[in-house]
Amino acid sequence: MPRPSSPILNPERIADAAIDLVDAGKPFGVNAVARALGVTPSSLYNHVEGKDAIVELMRGRLAERAAIVVPDGLSWDAVVEYVVREQRAMFAAHPLVLPLLVGKPVTDAGVLGYYDALAAALLSAGFADEDVLVVIAVLDAFALGSGLDLSAPNEVWRAAPNTALGRLVAKGEAGAERSDRAFDLGVELLLASLRARARAQSAGTEILDANL
Rank of each mutant, 00 (worst) to 15 (best):
G175W: 05
Y82I: 10
V102R: 13
P7W: 04
P41V: 02
V97S: 10
V55Y: 01
G73N: 07
A192L: 14
A93F: 09
D77K: 03
V79F: 10
R65E: 14
P2Y: 12
A196P: 03
A36G: 05
R88T: 11
W76Y: 01
L57W: 00
R13Q: 08
R61G: 06
L37K: 05
L122I: 15
E173G: 09
G186E: 06
G204Y: 08
V80Y: 00
R197H: 07
L98H: 00
R167K: 13
L168T: 08
L74N: 04
R181W: 03
I8W: 08
R13W: 05
F127V: 00
R158D: 08
A164G: 02
P105E: 05
S124W: 04
D180P: 00
P41Q: 07
S75T: 15
K104R: 15
L144W: 07
R61F: 13
E155R: 13
E188T: 14
Y114S: 07
P41Y: 04
A203V: 02
A78D: 13
E155W: 05
H47P: 12
P71G: 01
P2Q: 15
M58E: 00
T205H: 14
V30H: 04
G147A: 02
L168P: 03
F127W: 04
G166I: 01
R195N: 00
A200W: 06
L212P: 10
L150I: 08
P41D: 01
L168E: 13
L21W: 09
L208A: 09
S42E: 06
S42A: 10
L44T: 04
G60S: 11
V83Y: 01
P161V: 10
R167A: 15
R158G: 02
E155T: 12
D131H: 09
D131N: 06
E86K: 12
K104C: 15
T205E: 15
V39T: 04
L21D: 10
L133Q: 07
V169N: 13
M1N: 11
L185V: 14
S5I: 08
D116L: 06
N162G: 03
A67T: 08
A36C: 02
L144R: 06
N10V: 04
R61V: 08
W157K: 04
N162W: 11
D52H: 13
Y114R: 05
L96C: 00
Y115I: 06
P7L: 03
Y114W: 11
A117M: 02
S43D: 14
L194N: 01
R181I: 02
V84W: 00
G147I: 06
F91N: 07
I54F: 01
G110Q: 02
L208K: 07
G60I: 13
A24D: 15
R199T: 05
G110L: 03
D209Y: 04
L144H: 09
Y45V: 05
L57I: 00
P41F: 04
N46K: 10
L185Y: 13
G103P: 08
D184K: 13
V97P: 03
E12C: 01
L44P: 07
A125Y: 02
G38P: 01
V138M: 09
A203S: 08
A63I: 10
D72Y: 05
V22P: 15
F183S: 10
P2D: 14
A15M: 03
E12F: 05
I207P: 00
L150H: 15
G145Q: 04
A198W: 01
D131R: 09
S124H: 11
V132K: 01
E173P: 12
